[in-house]
Simulated assay, not measured.
Amino acid sequence: MSARPEEIILAEPRGFCAGVDRAIDIVEHALAKFGAPIYVRHEIVHNTYVVNDLKAKGAIFIEDLAEVPPGATLVFSAHGVSKAVQAEAEQRGFRIFDATCPLVTKVHVEVAKLAREGYEFIMIGHKGHPEVEGTMGQLDRGIHLVEDVADVARVQPEQTEKLAVVTQTTLSVDDAAEISAAVQARFPLIRAPKQQDICYATQNRQDAVKMLSREVDVVIVVGSPTSSNSNRLAELARKLGVDSYMVDSPAELRAEWLAGKKRVGLTAGASAPEVLVQDVVDRIRALGAVSIRKMDGIVETTKFPLPKGLRIGQQ
């Protein structure tokens, strides 16, 4: 086998999803319309390059609303926020734009609707992830987090007649299915979402990595360490028996990862911009790869509209 990489195969689809596009657009439109600074609660999306780019344009990222001056413009990140954070922001009188991904908002709406009907919830997700905190924070009580099959055996809802399951949108599709099956086995009457909560972009990128892994000797995932969906892509390739590494920038790519690997697969998490993918392509080419091809894959056409009042010229 060649000591240097020969071919780069690009996964399709990869990179930005509609929710990420919309979230970044919201911050950029707010900066254009109201001027810097624009305050953003939490990283708008989990990507270092994107966050640094928006910082350079005048966005200030905060975790505590006390850091935002009265009357300022505040954007909620794509991951969504709890009812308590929403109420505090309104009480402090900020001009608020909500960049929560509409697919996360769909989960929030479902939780609120079923809670009014007396349901409790089992939520499948990662503790401490801002999306999970936002979804669980839609209710004061009655929503129980499970991170794995072992948690399912331990969870103790107050009643089981009215129980529903919801899922973080960026999980491993296969892991979520396994945990869902365990939930269903323990609570046979549990209500599942009409459509699965894992978003189309997470599903599509994982399906693409499954196809990619059959054709390559190593998979490189462009994404930040905090990005749930990027981590899942690297994990998935490893589960399929292919070496996989995640890089936040081309500088992190190490030549020894590619030594003896003829075909290099390249993908990107839903919050990683294409400019970084192309920079990583250039770095792999500098290490010897001469050809590049794109896999066939789903072409995503989903677009989400901006909130009212953000288009230039609108009041």
Rank of each mutant, 00 (worst) to 15 (best):
R4L: 15
R4E: 15
R4N: 13
E6D: 14
R14A: 04
G15W: 01
C17P: 02
C17A: 09
C17I: 02
D21S: 12
I24P: 08
I24A: 13
I26M: 11
L31Y: 09
L31H: 12
F34W: 15
P37R: 06
R41I: 12
H42K: 07
H42G: 10
N52D: 12
D53W: 07
K55T: 11
E63A: 04
E63N: 07
V68L: 03
V75T: 09
F76Q: 05
F76R: 02
F76W: 00
A78F: 06
V81K: 05
V85I: 15
V85Y: 06
A89L: 05
G93K: 13
G93A: 14
F94D: 02
D98K: 01
K106I: 01
H108K: 08
H108C: 09
V111D: 01
K113D: 14
L114C: 08
A115G: 10
R116F: 01
E117L: 13
G118K: 10
Y119F: 15
G128A: 12
G128N: 14
H129R: 07
E131A: 05
E133S: 10
E133D: 14
E133H: 01
T135F: 00
M136D: 04
G137N: 07
G137F: 05
Q138D: 01
Q138N: 01
G142S: 08
G142I: 08
I143Y: 02
H144N: 14
E147N: 10
D148E: 10
D148M: 04
A150I: 04
V152K: 08
R154Q: 14
R154P: 03
V155P: 08
Q156E: 14
P157S: 12
E158P: 05
T160R: 11
T160V: 14
E161A: 13
V173C: 06
A177P: 01
S180N: 10
A182P: 03
V183L: 06
V183S: 06
Q184E: 11
Q184W: 00
Q184P: 01
R186V: 00
L189I: 05
L189M: 10
R191L: 13
P193A: 04
K194M: 00
I198G: 01
A201E: 09
A201W: 11
T202P: 08
Q206E: 01
V209N: 03
K210V: 14
G223H: 02
N229R: 06
N231R: 15
L236C: 04
A237N: 04
L240A: 02
G241F: 10
Y245N: 07
M246E: 05
V247K: 04
R254N: 11
A255W: 04
W257H: 06
K261R: 15
K261P: 03
K262N: 10
K262F: 00
R263Y: 13
V264N: 03
V264L: 07
G265H: 03
L266W: 02
A268T: 11
A270W: 00
A272G: 11
A272M: 10
A272N: 09
V277H: 02
V277F: 05
Q278H: 08
R285A: 15
G288S: 15
G288K: 13
A289I: 07
A289K: 07
V290M: 10
V290T: 15
I298F: 05
I298L: 12
V299W: 08
F304P: 02
F304Y: 11
L306I: 07
K308T: 14
L310R: 09
R311L: 13
I312H: 09
G313V: 00
